[in-house]
Design a protein around this nucleic acid. Structure first.
Length: 825
RNA sequence: GGCCGAGUGGCGGAAUGGCAGACGCGCCGGUUUCAAAAACCGGUUCUCGCAAGGGAGUGCGGGUUCGACUCCCGCCUCGGCCACCA
């Protein structure tokens, strides 16, 4: 009776073995190339589901593969533990956030281990640990020193339910990204990071992100949102007031027929003061003031506006144009005013039609003349200038520059660059975060806490609900009262906490030397390990986390504190796991627990299926039945190995040469080499473990058929190589087979099978012969044939001659390894 | 509206411009069993045919090529992200 595949015994055994032997404890090793492979660290929300697992299993497989390829691999893990969910959960369940975090961390760590996902746990970090967050506070101080942190009274997005200010990025369609409650505007004193100062750097250096998905780079560029254009000064009809606007289309300046101000525009009250329309205009402004991240709801709203009764003078042609207030003009973009050119902008066109405003064509499409009266939509494309004074006849693309220069000459404008990105709101009126390390002194003003006084400890509070926009810390007098570090007089601490985003913007630096006490990281270690060679995570962080991290690293680089300009050399964003047509999530009730799969089928089955489910960059549908396919694969391989185990264990090591092998032995070894080639290529090229596993399944079929016919030492080679090939994906299983083939030590101290040498000893390959892409035959040719030698061979080969049947050969197309196509006339 | 992706069996998905549908699931048939499950063996794009074999076939329409799922042009559909950003 054959021994059963007992994963329940095998898996814990090897997990303990790896732990004991410190397999994943990495040190700097100058003899090997380094590889810093990082999975985005999780929010310790409690329980991992198999959707989360995709991330970590993929990363672990890469780490194990690279390790076998000879790299010195750093694979650390930690916890992004500050932030709203922990605090909300703590309020809900009445336990301290720190306890909630600690419990969840313990469980998630257990889940990682039970799935065979191994990290260098000596480097574990937790962002809510004072040993960590004192250095988050240090980052804040450095930003302040660099003039990149400032306090301003600003309208902030305020979530009515979370009772917290949100970053623009956290507002989705006017509601809170986390809880979905409506977001309103509120004026508060807030800390900002001046990310806008780095907008151009961040944009330029997207050039360096060659190993990032194109999609993510594009999203970063769009988010920064550079627009090149001109600022134009329009003079109010009183001759004094100047109303500014930004345009990307100075070429359309002669076609301006009205002007729209944002309802929040500060000039409006003075412009309409004392006029008949004053009350109506102000009422309109109040009614259309922006609420939340977007005006109104998520839907496009009807364009509305009101005439102010006043006129502006177009600086280039003296046209007197009506000044309107319109709800589609945004105060926070440009300068809050739009020069409206209905003929060449669709929004302006719709507005002009609605309010019967004139339309003036100044750009004609190539070859035709537009008639303003007959237009049904705006013509936004380039063309030839018309009705534009001295610029008539000029291509509109050239006119952009020419008209801007003209504006400069007459002192009515200038070329400018605008960015969509805004400064980063960094303060939160919440408890569960790192206190902002600042002191408010009546005499000295806002004063940073000296580095030596860090950390500013977060006090343990039992009551930490936010009240009326104040941080809970504000009610805690022992925390608030302090002395000014400059003048020594009584002062107050800043009571806002640091947005959790900042904690996760530098953690990859801390991982390089997390044990450092007197500094955030050791410079030598940072220099050795940075940048992160392979970053793996979800595309949901495509903009915020990645952009913030890039910004912080650039700022620290400019301060001479880190050695790299970009933190992440290569990025891989894996697709989400779908179940029953929806993203897997606790709230939808469609989660599959890895614990259940592990106990039923084992960690290796879970890992194989997760990798096999589809190409890792794309979303994939989880089906419980399909899991069995991977389990069956392992069990079959186990059983087949069992039939050969006794022979293999005592066999000597196959050392070649390949002469004198039977046809079956050649075919068996060829299949092995083919699989090795495929697995190497798939992992190296694209992390396509799905096809790598498929090729191993194919290999199993052949091994099953041919291994019984091969001599013992070849069988030994086959099973030992098989074990090494599957080690990244099914590590426990591979260790067990490796050990049972008589292999010494851990399979992860072995080299991953390469294929080039192996293939070179393969005697011959079967090549398909096509005639005019149709008829087919097969010939055997030596392995390693080049395209040229194949073509030569085809002319003299008997099979080919017979197939050509005397017709004239026009062309021979040879694809090494695959086929020869002979085109005959 | 803008910018990306993607359309292949019943399903997930394979295919450097070269045997379309690898591999897995499911399904069908068989072996085994008192029976069922499991396991094992075989089959499984559609279509005509008892069969051998034939025909069609990668969203639609063109094109390039000896040869197109793959490249080019024009559509259609779906998904993602950003969106009255001047």
């Amino acid at each position: 009776m054959a021994e059963e595949y007992n994963f329940r015994e095998i898996e814990p055994k090897w997990q303990a073995n790896w732990q004991e032997n410190g397999l994943f404890e990495v040190r700097q090793d100058p003899t090997r190339p380094k590889l810093y492979c990082l999975n985005m660290f999780p929010y310790p929300s409690g329980v991992l589901h198999v959707g989360h697992g995709r991330n970590y299993i993929l990363g672990d497989a890469v780490v194990r593969y690279k390790k076998m390829k000879g790299y010195n691999v750093l694979a650390p893990m930690g916890w992004d533990a500050f932030g709203l969910p922990a605090e909300n959960a703590a309020i809900k369940f009445g336990i301290p956030p720190a306890k909630w975090v600690a419990d969840n961390v313990a469980n998630m760590k257990r889940q990682f281990t039970s799935q065979g996902i191994m990290f260098d746990w000596r480097r574990e970090i937790n962002t809510s640990d004072p040993n960590y967050y004192r250095w988050t506070q240090w980052v804040f101080l450095k930003m302040f020193e660099a003039g990149l942190a400032y306090k301003a009274n600003a309208p902030v997005n305020w979530c009515t339910s979370c009772a917290a200010a949100l970053a623009n990025e956290e507002v989705v369609d006017g509601t809170c990204e986390r809880c979905g409650s409506p977001v309103i505007q509120k004026q508060l004193d807030q800390w900002f990071f001046r990310i806008t100062k780095y907008a151009q750097h961040l944009l330029d250096d997207t050039e360096l992100l060659k190993e990032w998905p194109e999609k993510i780079v594009t999203m970063q560029r769009n988010w920064i949102g550079r627009s090149d254009g001109a600022e134009v000064d329009f003079r109010l009809d009183d001759g004094a007031t100047i109303v500014r606007c930004f345009t990307t289309r100075p070429d359309t300046l002669f076609g301006v027929t009205f002007f729209s101000l944002a309802p929040e525009h500060p000039l409006i009250p003075s412009i309409v003061r004392g006029t008949d329309l004053e009350q109506a205009v102000l009422r309109f402004c109040d009614a259309n003031r922006k609420v939340g991240g977007a005006r109104g709801s998520d839907q496009q709203y009807e364009k509305e506006g009101i005439f102010t009764g006043r006129y502006l003078i177009n600086p280039v042609n003296g046209d007197r144009i009506p000044l309107w207030v319109a709800n589609y003009a945004l105060m926070e973009y440009g300068s809050g005013g739009v020069m409206a050119v209905p003929a060449h902008d669709q929004r302006d066109f719709l507005f002009a039609k609605k309010y019967s405003l004139p339309i003036k064509v100044v750009i004609n499409p190539p070859g035709t003349d537009l008639d303003a009266d007959k237009m049904t939509e705006a013509y936004p494309d380039p063309g030839t200038q018309t009705d534009s004074g001295e610029f008539d006849g000029m291509p509109s693309e050239d006119a952009k520059k020419a008209i801007t220069e003209h504006l400069i000459r007459i002192g009515a404008g200038r070329g400018v660059v605008k960015y969509r990105i805004r400064d980063w709101l960094i303060s939160r009126q919440r408890y569960w975060g790192a206190p902002i390390p600042m002191i408010l002194c009546d005499k000295c003003g806002v004063t940073p806490i000296p580095e030596s006084d860090l950390p500013v400890l977060l006090p343990s509070l039992h009551e930490f609900k936010t009240k009326g926009g104040r941080s809970p810390l504000a009610d805690h007098s022992e925390f608030v009262s302090t002395k000014c570090p400059k003048c020594g007089s009584p002062a107050r601490r800043e009571t806002d906490t640091i947005a959790q985003w900042l904690c996760s913007c530098w953690y990859f630096l801390r991982f390089t030397s997390p044990w450092e006490k007197g500094q955030p990281f050791n410079r030598a270690d940072e220099k050795y390990w940075m940048p992160v060679d392979q970053y793996i995570g979800g595309a949901e962080h495509a903009v915020l986390h990645l952009l913030y991290s890039r910004f912080i690293v650039k700022a620290l680089y400019d301060l001479g504190l880190v050695s790299v300009k970009e933190p992440f050399k290569a990025l891989f964003t894996q697709g989400t796991i779908i179940k029953d047509g929806m993203k897997m999530s606790k709230s939808l009730g469609n989660v599959v627990s890895p614990d259940d799969i592990v106990s039923q089928y084992g960690a290796d089955t879970l890992r194989l299926y997760t990798l096999f489910i589809g190409p890792p960059e794309k979303p994939a549908e989880w089906t419980d039945e399909s899991v069995q396919g991977c389990f069956k694969f392992l069990r079959r391989l186990w059983e087949i190995f069992g039939e050969h185990e006794a022979v293999v264990r005592t066999a000597r090591t196959f050392a070649g040469p390949s002469t004198g092998l039977t046809a079956d032995e050649v075919n068996l070894r060829r299949a092995l080499h083919k699989a090795a080639k495929k697995v190497n290529f798939d992992i190296e090229d694209s992390f396509h473990f799905n096809t790598a596993i498929a090729s191993l399944m194919e290999l199993l079929h052949i091994v099953k058929e041919l291994a019984p016919k091969a001599r013992p030492e070849i069988r030994k080679e086959v099973f030992a190589t098989f074990a090494r090939l599957m080690a990244p994906m099914a590590p426990h299983f591979a260790e067990e087979i490796w050990a049972r083939t008589g292999g010494s030590g851990s399979v992860f101290t072995q080299a991953f099978p390469s294929w080039d040498e192996a293939v070179a000893e393969d005697p011959e390959l079967e090549i398909v012969v096509q005639i005019n892409g149709k008829l087919r035959g097969r010939i055997l040719l030596p392995v390693g044939s080049t395209k040229e030698s194949l073509e030569r061979e085809a002319v003299s080969n008997e099979t080919c001659i017979r197939l050509v049947e005397g017709r004239q050969i026009r062309k021979i197309i040879a694809i090494p390894d695959r086929l020869i196509n002979i085109v005959v006339g």
